[in-house]
């Protein structure tokens, strides 16, 4: 994943509590706003972060409900980098069906990863599939 001039990485463990998730979300978005990222950029970052955290708890920790996930992030003038890591056995991103195919349109789930890939500039999983790293580059940077 490309280097975007980061300097201060923040790491936090999150339990499946809405207040903890919102605190982390607010911290990331406040830092992004402080660097001048627009409302549209913050919408994209928030959506991707919410989807990544939901996937980590819902899928990664389906059998580990009391375990925290690990969130790391860095915000620079040019980009926002976020990593979300769960303690599950991982998954294969390639195996997730395309939710935009006609036969999948009326299925109620399976859109989170696709939205992350659409809204973020770069997305990658580790080999085990339990850690997602994503980068949002400032448009035009």
């Amino acid at each position: 994943m490309s280097d975007a001039g980061f300097s201060d990485r923040v790491a936090v463990d999150l339990e499946y509590e809405r207040s903890q998730i919102e605190r982390a979300t607010d911290s990331i978005l406040s830092a992004a706003e402080g660097q001048g990222f627009t409302k549209a950029s913050r919408f994209a970052i928030r959506l991707a972060f919410e989807e990544a955290v939901t996937n980590a708890f819902h899928h990664g920790h389906a059998n580990l409900p009391a375990q925290p996930i690990r969130v790391e992030y860095e915000v620079s003038n040019d980009a926002v980098w976020i990593a979300v890591e769960d303690r599950g056995k991982g998954f294969s991103p390639e195996a997730v069906p395309d939710p935009t195919l006609d036969e999948n349109l009326s299925l109620p789930s399976g859109r989170g990863l696709m939205l992350i890939r659409t809204y973020m500039s770069e997305v990658q999983h580790n080999e085990r599939g339990n850690r997602l790293e994503m980068l949002y580059k400032r448009p035009g940077a």
Binding site: R46, L47, S106
Partner: peptide, 16 residues
């Protein structure tokens, strides 16, 4: 102002 894929899923369930 904001929603996630979980909300989209709920809307699809409602639509169905």
């Amino acid at each position: 102002d904001h929603l996630t894929s979980a909300a989209l899923g709920a809307l699809i369930t409602i639509r169905n």
